[in-house]
Structures are given as C-alpha cells and as structure tokens.
Design a protein around this nucleic acid. Structure first.
Lengths: 345, 345
DNA sequence: CTGAAAGCGCTTACAG
DNA sequence: CTGAAAGCGCTTACAG
C-alpha cells in the first residue's frame, strides 16, 4: 500500500553500541538513562567506554521504541479545530503560534501538529481512528468551537491536555483570558465618558468566553455601571441593528469582535453621537483611520502559559487547583469610544 | 526523572479488540490493514465482527508501535534552522507555513516541528542526539543557512528529506525558486527603461540562491544586457555605497532583499536619477509610499511542492531526476525602478 | 556491577 | 481462513 511502506532506515541501535563497547545492550541503556535504578552503578571506566561508542557512532534513540517502552518523548501535540497557519486565521493564531514555538524550544520539546485529523462538519475530529496525538506526551487544544465532551473523555483517560481559552467542563485544564474583568473595565471607562445606555450586538455563540462577556454585561447593568441591552443579530442585520440603537438614543454600540465593530463603525461613521467598541482584540483594526476601541489580549503569553502548564501536568507536577488560569488583558482605549456628548475624547 | 516519566495511558489495544471479537490479535491487525498478504482473506462475517468491536471500543492504533514495526506513520518532520513562527521571521516563513499546513492536511499527514533540537552557534543542529526527526517518515528542511553536508549524510542513510530552496549538494532533493531567470527578467526590464549601468550591493552570502543571483548578473553583463558592478557591503556601509554608485553616474542600485532596498531607497529619496530594486520578495515593502520593485516568490506553492515531493520520496515514487525543482517567480515592477532619465515610469 | 529476559503494541511471514 | 511466533528498539525489574 502506497504511503504506508517500510520506512525503516538503517541506523545505529543500542545493540550495536553494546557490541562496540563490549558490554550488554542493557548497560548501554543504563548509561543513557543515567542509571535510574539505585542498584545500578556503572563504573566510570565502563561508562566512558560506552559514551565514546555513543559519540563515535552518532547514536540517536528511536523515539518510537522509547515511547513503546513507556517513556515520554518530549513531544507536545497541538490540535487546532481549524487550520492555524492559513491566511484567514493567522490573525488569531499567529500570536499563539509564536508563543507555542518559543515555549517548546525553551522546554526542549518538539511539536506535533495534528493536521491529519479528518475535518467533519467544518471542524477537526479529535477522537478519531486517524488522530495520532497519542504519540505526543500531551496535547494543546486550540479553537473557539471545541467539543468539550470529547476533551473530557481524553482527560478522564489520563491523557494530559490543556485548552487555550476558558472551558466550562471542570475537568479540562485551560489557560484563558479574563473577559469578564476586561468587559467591566471597558464599561467603567464608558461610564466615565458619560455613557449611560448601550446595546451589545452578538451572534449568540455559546462558547465560554462569549458567555463570560454576556454575563459581565449583566452584572454591569445590575450594578448600575451601564444599562446594557443585548441583541442577537445575524451578520446581515448588523448595520440595521446599530442604526436602531442610535435611533433609541443609545450612545454606545458594543460588538463581539473587531470585525463587526469595524462594520458598525462604518455604518455610523457620520453619526458623532454614537460610540463603538469591541469586546475582543482590536489590534490593527480601524474605522476611517481611527483605532477601534476594545481589548489587547496577551495571546503569546497565553500560549506560553498553556504549554508550561501542559508540561507540568505531564510531569505530574500540576496540582488540580492550578489547572485553570485566566490571564488579565488590557483595555485598548482606541478612538471609536468617545465621550457620550459627541465631543472628541 | 521529571519530564521523562511513564506517560502510558490506559488504552484499547488490538488484543482487547481480539478478545471482544473472539478472534486472534493478528486477525485484528489484518482487518485493520486491509489484508495485505494475498493469502489472507478474511470472511465478511469475521471482518464485520472485528469492525464493530473496533468502533465500539474506539480503537486507535499506537503510532509508536506501528513505527517500531516498520510502518510509516504519515508524520512529516519540519526542521527549521531558525524559529519559524517568531515575529521577526514570520514574513519569510509565514507563506511557507501556510503551504505546509494546507498540503499536510490534503495528504493526510501530521507535522512534527523539531523545535527541540539544540541551537548551536545561532542555528539548530540537525544531527544531534536530541533530534527526533526519525519519528517522522521524512523531513522538510527550511532555512537559508543550511549545513548541506549534514543533510547529505541523512540522505545517504536513506532518510527522505526535501530542502526548501536550491542546494548545491546534488544528493539533496529540493524545491526552490529560479532566481537566475527572475534576475535576468528584471535586468531586461531595466534595460528597456533606459538603464545601462548598475551596482549590486550584497553581503556576499554563500547560499546557493545568493550565488544564483550573482551568477545571473555576470551573465547579463557578459551578454550586454546591463553592465552590473557587484560590491560587497556591510550593513553599515549600505547608504555610503549607494551614494557612491550615484556619484559614478550609475542609474540603478540593486539590493539583495527588500529591507536593504528600502534603506537604499530612503538614502536616495531626493535623487530622482537613481532607481532601486531588490532581487528578492518585496511584498509589503515601500519607500516613501512607493512599492519597492523586485520579485514575487511563490512561497506557498514552494511549500506545497516540497511537501508533495517529500511524500513521493517516502512512497518511493520520485525518480531521482525529479528531485530537483526550480519554480518560476514573477517580477514585481513596483515603483522604485523608474526610467533611467528620471522620468516617472 | 552487569547480563538475560520480559514486555510495550504492532506487523508480517509462516504453519496449521 | 486464522492463530502462534518472531521481531522492531527500547526500558526495567530481576538474577547472577
């Protein structure tokens, strides 16, 4: 069968090293692994002889064999529910990938990107016969639209995973961003600028971080910070909904992300009485030359923390209580959130 | 030893499936592998029973065991001599990564990024005890500054590799860009615009593609297309060398890449008599709002072709003659290469 | 201190 | 048609 042929390459094994050094294969293994067992103490002379043979023959352990024998390989899996390096998604994934690569290098780990997993219904299947994450010591999970049940199964089996982004399912370790705190901070700022009533336009996604934002808006309303109406809109309805909000005399339209905020901003560009802000990363997004107000998310750091957490879990060093982290972000004041009276900020 | 502990997770094996289905483990393997041997013909009834057990127990083959048993794993290694996903290098590697991910998905392969290999003297070591590319069926090699000898050793051992970028060492398969043809095309264009004498400022790197450019310039000079002087400059000397060229009455300064071209362009921005062009990718580079003249390189396609070639070599399907490919690029006319008389193009 | 042996999960001739 | 057996390269108790 093509693509499945014998790919063994002639290479140096421990047996060969043993022959050269005049010891047993088990001794070579012991030298390599720093004499694990307390009983095993190899005399310096033997050790050196083996080391020399190792160097000379350029021995490299076969990771498959190590793995099969029950050892870790310092390989971390990366599972993305959608392509991560494509032109469309690089905005979101790019900073994460930067952090992942950096951390992997620092931790001395290789990265297995599970690009082969079949895409069913627009997202990759994690639990599939063809998914090979088991070669990795553990796996990082990236993507908005994650099947938490699947991940929970994996975790229950004892396989180390860490999600990037908050998860509901309590068994799943994650590193996310504190959208609740960011949302509240932005609203507080809006209030200081004179805003009293706002509308949040969203697509009603049920991801944890989407829910965090809605929940924070509710708390802000209840707490008297700002009176926020929420409205579920489709993509086609965005501009209409924004104009309606303006018609009701609201002075602020909040959007789920920079893209929708930019569209709303464009639709209201002639209306100085309405501000716009996104409850998401807005770097590089502008309306009529004005930086969109919103958040700065520490994406590279998230990746870094997630990989570090994964590494700890693999090492059995992460107490369950430390498996959930929300990192703080920063509010980007931007230029589309202005004073409520229409004056420039 | 931390980080090296037992990472086996309790999982379903063929033996377990065999027990459920009431057959031998070997039969399970035969069913899974589509009855390779001609002698093996499993009756539909048995096959179905096994299939059901496989589904029900969510069997996933252990890639390490498959590998050890001599089969391919559909894992392609990616070795980059420098970080590929960092902010500094994403310009160069980004389009390559896009192509790599796409192709891997299409080929049904996972990607092993060898981020763990130790960096010695500013670049990653390929042949090192810690390098785990052997887990992959083959390996893609990315980076300007490649130790061809090392790679040749790997190839000689029978390990499938493909380099991105032309290589001198004839045993190394590669997919590169035809810098020679691009350089000639740009010079021909310059001649049509009235240029007769130019200087090429370069750092005297000895990479194959750097040499291709110099060689093409030599041919162009010998062939009477354009009289090109070449000058080796350090980074600090760039502006001085460019002004000298102008002083000698040359009308065109050629640079190695868009960054140096932009610097030269800035230094000569007041001098309408001197044009600037880069013998490299210039997308997104401008001087005083003018797109830098140069090349458009098919980086995504290169990655795609390289991965496809690697896949073929692994399958034993690539005739040695087909292991070297130079793809055509496109000359980007840009706005910094103007008519030699200083008029706008 | 060191070697022989079992076992990790799989494939692949080879007997029945 | 199906099972028993050897072997891939490694680790790890366990005997000597």
């Amino acid at each position: 069968m093509a693509g499945n042929g014998d790919v063994r390459t002639r290479r140096v094994t421990q047996r060969e090293i043993a022959r050269i050094a005049g010891v047993s294969q088990a001794t070579v293994s012991a030298v390599l692994n720093g004499s694990t067992s307390a009983t095993v103490r190899i005399p310096p002379a033997t050790r050196e002889r083996v080391q020399r043979a190792l160097e000379q023959a350029r021995y490299v352990a076969d990771p498959a064999a190590r793995r099969l024998a029950g050892l870790g390989n310092k390989i971390l899996g990366v599972f993305t529910y959608e392509p991560a390096m494509s032109v469309e998604t690089v905005d979101f994934y790019g900073p994460l990938l930067t952090g992942i690569e950096e951390s992997a290098e620092r931790l001395g780990c290789d990265l297995l990107f599970l690009t082969a997993s079949p895409v069913v219904g627009g997202r990759r299947r994690l639990l599939d016969r063809r998914t090979r994450f088991r070669l990795a010591d553990g796996c990082l999970l990236l993507g908005q639209d994650m099947d938490e049940q699947e991940v929970a199964e994996l975790v229950a089996e004892g396989y180390p995973c860490v999600a990037v982004g908050r998860r509901e399912e309590p068994s799943i370790p994650y590193v996310g961003v504190d959208y609740g705190a960011l949302t509240l901070e932005l609203l507080t700022r809006a209030r200081a600028l004179g805003h009293r009533r706002a509308t949040y336009l969203h697509a009603d996604r049920q991801t944890p971080s989407a829910l965090d934002r809605v929940e924070a808006l509710g708390r802000a309303t209840a707490g008297g910070v700002l009176d926020v109406r929420t409205e579920i809109v489709t993509d086609d309805d965005l501009e209409r909904a924004a104009r309606d909000a303006a018609g009701r005399g609201e002075t602020l339209v909040l959007c789920e992300n920079a893209f929708t905020a930019a569209r709303v901003g464009s639709a209201l560009v002639d209306d100085d009485t309405v501000s716009v802000a996104a409850l998401g990363e807005t770097e590089g997004h502008a309306v009529a030359g004005r930086q969109v107000s919103g958040f700065r998310l520490p994406r590279t750091r998230m990746a870094h923390e997630a990989l570090t957490l994964l590494h700890r879990i693999i090492d059995g060093e992460a107490a369950p209580a430390k498996r959930h982290r929300l990192l703080p972000g920063r509010v980007e004041p931007g230029e589309t959130l202005r004073a409520a009276d229409g004056a420039s900020r």
